[in-house]
């Protein structure tokens, strides 16, 4: 659908023998710079010198206990969402697909609503994780499991049915969440809508550990499926003719997306547009080869969420804006611009 931007900069790297390595190196470098600079923005002014200043224990405490886990969580969630976006778009052979298309976000939202409304009196924590986290995570996994079962017959999993079942489930989970909202009181409503807008303000090291583990698991699994994802872009039967085990590939990739997005939504609420827009921009720059698209999207997603989270906590300080609000607020216009400027090159078959 979208064709590739051909700027001399990207063309030069694409032509280089070390293309992938160069991109990944540059991407990691950008992520590190973003993460490092983000540590020094915030309500309390902290300078780099404070890190080495023995007197500045208060500032160091803020850095290590508040800002570092927050930045790390934003990094991981951004990378996970972008990776899951790539996979969904490849799996559905649609550059405009989004992970929420298979019902992950809706399921998480319903799960969170159930926990907030029904268990409001006893807000409990298990090992640094709130009950809402478990509700959202279980909700999202259940949703994907249900959608996947609906779309799977003896003949295999139909991607079209998956999409339609995802839409149906989104409506069902949405009505469930609305009904619970209707039952809830003012305090519950506020917590619900705040959760839904997403944010990293409760970040702690348990969250970070979970997110990092998920990111590492994805990084361990996905390289084996890069060829399969590329073949999938041609079509499912074409991938089969190229020797790809279509059934296993689909199952593993859907589990990856469900776990990845489920965890992200449970940790940080629904953060829209990262999974949709990041792989899209990356494809415009480097083409459709997943060997490049996956790692670069991960880096760009990480940078993007670190930056938006920094904006979220500095723009209206000392107040905080939910980060999901900012990603939509910036993401939607950027996406409209992309549609306007690059869709004239659309050549539909």
């Amino acid at each position: 659908m979208l064709s590739k931007l051909t700027t001399p900069f990207f063309a030069a790297i694409n032509a280089s023998r070390y293309g992938v390595g160069l991109y990944v190196l540059m991407g990691t470098f950008c992520v590190l710079i973003c993460a490092f600079s983000a540590l020094f923005f915030g309500v309390i002014p902290i300078s780099v010198a404070d890190v080495f200043n023995a007197q500045a224990t208060f500032e160091q405490h803020i850095l290590i206990e508040l800002r570092l886990p927050r930045v790390l969580l934003a990094l991981c969630v951004g990378a996970i969402l972008a990776i899951c976006g790539c996979i969904t778009q490849g799996l559905f052979r649609n550059p405009l697909a989004d992970p929420s298309i298979i019902g992950v976000s809706a399921g998480a939202s319903a799960g969170a609503s159930i926990v907030i409304v029904l268990f409001s009196e006893q807000v409990s924590y298990f090992g640094g994780l709130s009950l809402v986290f478990f509700g959202a995570f279980i909700g999202s996994i259940l949703a994907v499991f249900l959608v996947y079962r609906l779309a799977t017959t003896a003949a295999g999993t139909s991607v079209t049915t998956l999409l339609l079942a995802g839409i149906a489930l989104t409506f069902f989970a949405g009505s469930l969440a609305s009904f619970l909202q209707y039952l809830g009181d003012n305090d519950m409503l506020k917590r619900l809508s705040l959760w839904r807008m997403g944010g990293f303000d409760h970040a702690n090291y348990t969250h970070v550990a979970l997110a990092i583990s998920m990111l590492l698991i994805l990084c361990a699994i996905l390289p084996r499926f890069i060829k399969a994802l590329n073949a999938f872009l041609l079509g499912e039967s074409q991938a089969f003719y190229l020797g790809i085990n279509v059934k296993v590939t689909k199952r593993v990739l859907i589990i990856c997306v469900a776990a990845g997005v489920g965890l992200s939504v449970a940790l940080a609420g629904t953060i829209a547009f990262v999974g949709l827009i990041v792989p899209h921009i990356v494809r415009l720059c480097v083409g459709a080869d997943h060997r490049l698209v996956l790692p670069i999207s991960a880096c760009l997603g990480a940078c993007l969420l670190i930056l938006t989270d920094t904006l979220a906590r500095t723009v209206l300080q000392p107040e905080e804006i939910p980060v999901g609000l900012i990603t939509s607020f910036i993401g939607a216009p950027v996406f409209m611009w992309l549609l306007k400027t690059h869709h004239h090159k659309v050549v539909d078959p």
């Binding site: 052979r93 190229l242 790809i244 494809r283 083409g287 459709a288």
Partner: peptide
């Protein structure tokens, strides 16, 4: 896949691959 190569009737491809990259998919 190393024995039988198949060209289906319809080959929809909506992603920005170059001609060389598409041909290279046959080497999977």
């Amino acid at each position: 896949a190393q024995t039988v190569a198949v060209l289906p009737q319809f080959n929809p491809l909506n992603f920005p691959f170059s001609v060389r990259e598409v041909i290279n998919l046959g080497r999977i």
